[in-house]
Amino acid sequence: MGPLNYLDIDRLSLVPEKYWSLHEFCFYLHDSLMEAASTYELSGSHLVIEDIVQEIITEHHPNIEEFDLIELLKDNELDEAYRQHIVGHTVLALLSDMHQFLYSSLEAFERRKFSVGFSLLRKVLKEHLVFLCWIVADETDFINRFEGDVYKTLNNLSKEKRIEIFDTSIEWIELTNMFDSNVLWSYIFDKNFSGGFEPVWQMATHLVTSQGIIKTKRYSLNFAFEDRSDDYYFELLYEKLPYLLIFLVQVAMKSLSKTCEVDKKVVGRFIISTVGVYEALCLTGKSHIAVLLRTFFKDFLHCMFCGEKIRLTKKKRPRLFVSQLIECQHCRVDNQFPLDWLMSKANLVVKENGDIDTLITSKPRIA
């Protein structure tokens, strides 16, 4: 298994070793989101309105053989039911489609198929993410536009509109202090930012590009002559992708909560774990999550085999959060550590007043 004990080591054989943990973390975020979406779908929350309407039709209009559910809800001014139906089905459809692209993108990067990986990732971050943010930020505006000519109303958004959507959606999620709307726009949409994804997406999608910093050079075609053994694209990818995927997961979970009850304690513990991994893998300096763990669980950090105290080092924390495993530095044996269960007993959750925000002290800079 990989360093986080999450992916089989054979899958990482073509990925540079220094990015193994980050790649596993990205897959962990993907899988966690898909698990939440699957739980939502199995709950049937998106079908509640259909079932209620069907019961009404059966009881009061038994002779009707066919009906348009959306028109029925609108004609009878069932505004809340109409909202819940549109939002529930749209969120689930977006997440289902996004899963296909994100999973295939991460899988392509494992095989060093960079143009394929970036082309697939483009739709996830430029489209799926923006629509999910829009639903979280202003579902009324989204629904009003969704009712119209979508090719006009949901297309060709201005920079200002995208930043506004990001900015408002950030206010609704738990980790508000971690994200910045201008940083998100630069990472995803800025064609002139060499450290962002947009220039790479353009080149991965088109053999010839003619604008700004991505003009195709003489005797070249974008990505066609690329040296697949060069690790440059891994560096670009994993410098930005974990941050963006954490935001995506936050927004997606908030969008799911719009039409069904979500266990806030479970979501809170997942957020704490996610931040813990991100701090260890991507940030420098003091880890607030590590301090929190040592404060609450120092009495449990003893090896179950040799009895010695286990040091919770920066290298060990990601594996602990993702796979609930921690290695004893004395006897070198892995210990199963029920972190989720302990956090539930310690009542470590993300509170609605934003206490979790204090755990993130720095935002990425546009560089």
Results as ranks from 00 to 15, higher is better:
277 V>E: 01
278 Y>S: 11
279 E>Q: 15
279 E>L: 02
280 A>H: 02
280 A>Y: 09
280 A>D: 03
280 A>S: 11
281 L>R: 09
282 C>Y: 15
282 C>H: 10
282 C>K: 14
282 C>V: 12
283 L>H: 06
283 L>E: 12
284 T>A: 12
284 T>N: 13
284 T>R: 15
284 T>S: 14
285 G>A: 11
285 G>T: 10
286 K>V: 11
286 K>I: 10
287 S>Y: 12
290 A>N: 07
290 A>Q: 15
290 A>W: 13
290 A>G: 07
290 A>M: 14
291 V>T: 14
291 V>W: 03
292 L>G: 11
292 L>D: 08
293 L>G: 00
294 R>W: 15
294 R>P: 00
294 R>Y: 15
295 T>C: 08
296 F>D: 02
298 K>F: 13
298 K>P: 00
299 D>N: 14
300 F>D: 07
301 L>T: 10
301 L>A: 09
302 H>K: 15
302 H>I: 10
302 H>C: 13
302 H>W: 14
303 C>N: 11
304 M>L: 10
304 M>T: 11
305 F>V: 00
305 F>P: 07
305 F>R: 09
306 C>L: 09
306 C>I: 02
306 C>F: 07
306 C>A: 10
307 G>N: 14
307 G>F: 13
308 E>T: 13
308 E>N: 14
309 K>G: 10
309 K>I: 13
309 K>T: 12
309 K>Q: 14
311 R>A: 14
311 R>P: 09
312 L>E: 09
312 L>T: 12
312 L>A: 11
312 L>M: 11
312 L>I: 06
313 T>W: 09
313 T>I: 07
314 K>A: 04
316 K>N: 08
317 R>T: 08
318 P>L: 08
318 P>M: 04
319 R>Q: 06
319 R>P: 04
319 R>D: 02
319 R>G: 05
320 L>W: 07
321 F>E: 00
321 F>V: 03
321 F>K: 01
323 S>H: 02
323 S>K: 06
324 Q>M: 08
324 Q>I: 00
325 L>A: 03
325 L>Y: 06
325 L>D: 03
326 I>Y: 05
327 E>T: 07
327 E>C: 00
327 E>I: 00
328 C>S: 05
328 C>Y: 12
329 Q>V: 08
329 Q>N: 06
330 H>N: 12
330 H>F: 05
330 H>S: 11
331 C>W: 10
331 C>I: 07
331 C>V: 05
331 C>Q: 10
332 R>T: 02
333 V>K: 04
335 N>C: 05
335 N>G: 02
335 N>D: 04
336 Q>W: 03
337 F>M: 01
338 P>N: 05
338 P>I: 00
339 L>E: 01
339 L>G: 08
339 L>P: 11
339 L>W: 09
340 D>L: 10
340 D>C: 06
340 D>V: 04
342 L>S: 05
343 M>N: 00
343 M>I: 01
344 S>H: 06
344 S>N: 04
346 A>C: 11
347 N>Y: 06
348 L>C: 07
349 V>W: 14
349 V>Q: 13
